[in-house]
Design a protein around this nucleic acid. Sequence first.
RNA 1: GCCCAAGUGGCGGAAUCGGUAGACGCGCCGCACUCAAAAUGCGGUAUCGAAAGGUGUGUGGGUUCGAGUCCCACCUUGGGCACCA
Length: 831
Amino acid sequence: MSDDRSTEQDYDFRALEAKWGGSWEEAKVFEPQPGDTRERRYVVDMFPYPSGDLHMGHAEAYAIGDVASRFWRFKGYNVLHPIGWDSFGLPAENAAIKNGTHPAEWTYKNIEVQAGSFKRYGLSLDWSRRLHTSDPEFYRWTQWLFLTFFKKGLAYRKDSPVNWCPKDQTVLANEQVVDGACERCGTLVTKKKLNQWYFKITEYADRLVDDMDQLEGHWPDRVLLMQKNWIGRSHGANVRFALEAAGDQPARDIEVFTTRPDTLFGATFMVVAVDSDLAEEIVAPGQRAEFEAYREKAKAATEIERQATDREKTGVLSGRTAVNPVTGEQIPVWISDYVLADYGTGAIMAVPAHDGRDLGFAKAMGLPVRSVVENGDPDPAESGEPSLSPGTAKNSGPLDGLAKEEAIAAAIRLVEERGTGEGTVNFRLRDWLLSRQRFWGTPIPIIHCESCGEVPVPEDQLPVRLPDDLKGEQLAPKGESPLAAAMEWRRVSCPSCGGEALRDSDTMDTFVDSSWYYLRYTSPGLEDAPFSRDAVDEWMPVGRYVGGVEHAILHLLYARFFTKVLYDLGLVGFTEPFSSLLNQGQVINQGKAMSKSLGNGVNLGEQLELFGVDAVRLTMLFASPPEDDVDWADVSPTASSKFLARAWRVARDAGQAGAAGDPADSKDTALRRVTHQTLAQANELLEQSKFNVVVAKLMELTNAARKSIDSGAGAGDPAVREAAMVLTQLLSMFAPYTAEDMHEMLGGEGFVANTRLPEPDPSLLVADTVTAVVQVQGKVRAKLEVSPDVSEAELEEMALSAPPIVRLLEGRSVAKVIVRAPKLVSIVPGK
RNA sequence: GCCCAAGUGGCGGAAUCGGUAGACGCGCCGCACUCAAAAUGCGGUAUCGAAAGGUGUGUGGGUUCGAGUCCCACCUUGGGCACCA
């Protein structure tokens, strides 16, 4: 039994961090070099927002990206792994208002703090490509891209009721409204009619769904599913119902969208959304007073109330009658708030027998219910439950007897022949509202001219810079952008007619910035374009994109949309930006998200002080698979520290023993096997991002090497040296400081980060004996040590003659023997 | 309400294809070193049983020589969507 603490020199993470800190950046270890022709790989971590210093969540996310990046470097790829900051956004503005300063002050101060922490954290980043979205050199190109979209007709302005956050005093995208409240501050969102800028993302809805095929298996299934549901593509038909003339109101059509045209014969009334223009247009004079009262009531209901799906249905008669185009029946047209104005056409045909909501309304208003699907369900008119099971059409004239899918097709043909409708596709997705009435964002580069309308700022006048003399209170929200009041900044001459004109005073949603930042990394400092086509095509798509699931829809959908538009414009040669996505879990504490109010926050800086960078990184990665949450209360950075010290001592001892010679000559083939198997397994596990298992394998390798040093071949054996070197390389992905020191102690040249992983020796991957299991009736009854290339016949023979088996089978016949050489024999005894 | 994912020791978690369940670590127990402790090292640790042996991957069923893994139903937890016609 030996004690490996015998030398006075011992593991000291503080000394290591001091010794190796900054050396990688100085030596440009992680900067791709021009002219490097090796295959490229691109690793991007979702860039941080500069609020305060890095926290535990960052520590996990960036550790994950770092292992991926270092692994590819070890495999010999030319790897790009950049960093930047998502540095526009509200918190900077709120801080500026509070402190009477400009948002840039707070922003860039925080960025410097975070950059320092990133460097300390030992990440393999290329610092030369660093970007900040709030830099004019960056947002100049955000503006250029906006104008490019604008010229293509993909950016437009319209008046519409928008989500408005009364606290933040800004509009919100649909995606930023959660349960009727502002995603950021939790205030209940109200509707406000405003003139706003939109990106026409709906034009790409089909491709955003279809191109997910490319991502299947490379993105988490749930993210793809969430996007699919969010886009909400549904196939169906638009059907026009003739609205009869009444008084001096002329006849016209009401168009509805339905996914169930097969139930058209069961449409016994229609419903128009109360807040739609259509309701306003068609309501009969006699019903107007009642309608307006109802509309006021509906408006007063909060979004939460309106969305409660189980509340009693309400509505008023429009006083008008429509004609069911297939039955010729006259049916009443109702107005209700259960129909959405901004989905489909804002009006529906109601088939109460086969739709729960329509049935609820029919029951409330005493309207007829007619079943048109034969499916064995009880009659909804009596049961009060909608009949939803698939079946065959009935009471439906020409459709009778057809199964659901055929009936749908036949119904579409029917309305198409009669010119009263057609098959169509509808989406839940709405256009992306991108303008914000706030200061700290990319100014929208449009000039409004009385005579010329919306005029793009000429390219040579970009960027439209934010004024830097607005401070503190001047930035306070007033319901319109703080820029609106900066008349000196706004007043310009029209680029088209030279007359007096005003700049657009809104800024862009920061998701516009993050929709293309990963492209800019490929072309740092480029002055005449946002990125070079050659550079993006060389690096893109991103081979490993790491970030939280909270961006499953928003950011990732927008970035995919941008990429498709840029592809159509010929600016990039690919249609999907991120070919592989990894969602890391959260770092929590005691089963709950860390928060000030719970008082369970863990401070990253403190953890780094206590245990060191390497131990914290290792703890994060060993705790669980990267996509699972890490509960800091369940893990032990102390244990990581101990392991690192053990590993470090292995390298120290091997280094001090000064081993020389070919590992192939070592007698310690057991250790060599472990080394090469670890190498092979680590390769496979890293490919699958199973970092926690890789760490377990490294612990086993460390233990095996320790054993050889203490009670085997000894520290001077070349097999020990080999083990120590492989350990050092693999460990460097997780614990870069410790590993650089181990590399040096082992007499390695330069940085371990610059080495390549050796190929495992295939002859060492097969053991000289394997344990074969003998099962009787599925239970393990004997184990045999056999050669890995034992024949099936031999193995069967050995199994049947093994004493425990012979004993068990005494007096019984053998019905069947299944042999899977060399691992298993399964015996089925007869009666 | 609809859709999805996951349930494995005291804990975090392992387990290519259906083939020895519980790797690795934490915690705990014991031992060595020490005056003692810390640190370090070594050993043990699913469960019932003295042992032989039995039982065990949320529950109940099924397929199979063999199921943590596949199928069906259910329970629980987490997530997404939520009057989207």
